[in-house]
Design a protein around this nucleic acid. Structure first.
Lengths: 225, 225
DNA sequence: AAACTGATTTAGACTACCCTAAATCTGATT
DNA sequence: AATCAGATTTAGGGTAGTCTAAATCAGTTT
């Protein structure tokens, strides 16, 4: 029951969780790309994860992989660690939102349940991390959230930024400079249907912004009107 | 130069540092016992550590091992991480002094220099951890300290507890209950030269205590008179 | 239905750690 | 000087991860 997973296994579970979020099975190539390893390495690990007791994944050769309930709990445990740590580093140790990811990635595998509980308590049991991503509960359920990317909006619509789904520090710093952070309100002015650029106007900012899909696919918003 | 060490290597360097503190070379058996591995495993690791670039240890077969200057710096880096973490967990997250060691043992290998600096800053650059052990400086020098074990004291001498050199949670809880913690003053009443028991009287405590060497060898004091 | 393409798996090798069992060395004792 | 005990190393094997190169599969196109 209380299997101790290796750090590598935990990273694989996290990646499978992220890539099968839509319900579909995660495939070898995408996992390899996300984890920065060769596809053959993924195949090897999947074989191991499929035969643990209890099994953590369902793996059908050539047809991708999904998490079992036990595997999903293991993944959510790590995601909870990660996002609580990001929140702690951000709020308590003065990290910026582009710095938190890397540190949390290493710490998430080694903190105890006790440590998790203590920082959750110290933070007042936060429900979102500094990027606006929801933090899984202690019971390992993912809070429901609205997942509309900014790229889906069209001229005339108003929205509030909810979460920025990106880890790349350079991109995060760029978004910070643009003022595109959780809580910010905006209105869509124009849409170019050829390059899919979106022109938006951020509340309390004078000049409009033209954004490509590299950005608009990663900023998730809640539509207001 | 900036070799990335494995967690296991770091644990070996820490152990070699601790066991060769007296200047003598550390031997295979003691390392194996301290690290909880078989002696043959130690031999294998020592061969690897001796041929890194730069070399971290000086290893002569059958004659023990010492750290090179580079190895000592690497060891002190981990000790600094460990003791800063213990201090942080203790002061900021409400851990007790018997709980800090285990958590710090896992975190010490994964925190960044940035994290180290931030918690050192947040703590006001402490010089001792919750057990009274000195924290290596940022420049990786070990602050000098008086290392007289309580067991060396004889009747009539007065002393102040400086550090408690123990990781075992049960022992630490016991010492806490006895009131034998850093800063506490005491007087030696009697010494039994057969079983080496020491009878002491702790300041502000009514009843005297009789302590065996399991304790008196681990409590280090500064003699006052 | 055959062929092609891209994704995937297999095969085989490497590193870093661990182990046990057997051999060997060192230093003390006779 | 030979022996002996204990410490240490060697030999050989196991696991978990990584890789590259070669083979195979699945789905589309012809």
């Amino acid at each position: 029951m209380k299997n101790t997973l290796t750090h590598a296994s935990e990273d694989y579970l996290k990646a499978i969780y992220a890539l099968s979020a839509n319900g579909a099975a995660a495939n070898t190539t995408a996992l390899a790309a996300r984890l920065g390893v060769a596809p053959a390495s993924v195949t090897g690990m999947l074989k191991r994860l499929a035969v643990t007791q209890p099994p953590l994944i369902v793996y059908r050769k050539h047809h991708g992989v999904t998490l079992t309930p036990a595997g999903e709990r293991a993944a959510l445990e790590i995601v909870r660690h990660h996002r609580l740590l990001e929140t702690y580093l951000y709020r308590t140790l003065g990290y910026t939102w582009d710095e938190v990811h890397e540190e949390a990635c290493r710490l998430e595998h080694v903190i105890s349940e006790d440590f998790e509980e203590r920082i959750a308590e110290a933070l007042g049991h936060p429900v979102r991390d500094p990027h606006g991503e929801p933090i899984p509960t202690r019971e390992l359920t993912m809070p429901p959230f609205e997942a509309v990317p900014l790229s889906k909006l069209r001229p005339g619509q108003r929205a509030v930024v909810q979460r920025v789904h990106a880890d790349d520090p350079a991109l995060l710093r760029h978004l910070q400079r643009l003022g595109l952070t959780p809580g910010v309100g905006l209105t869509v002015d124009a849409y170019d249907e050829f390059d899919h650029n979106l022109q938006i106007k951020i509340d309390a900012q004078a000049d409009p912004l033209v954004l490509g899909t590299a950005i608009t696919d990663k900023v998730f918003i809640e539509v207001i009107a």
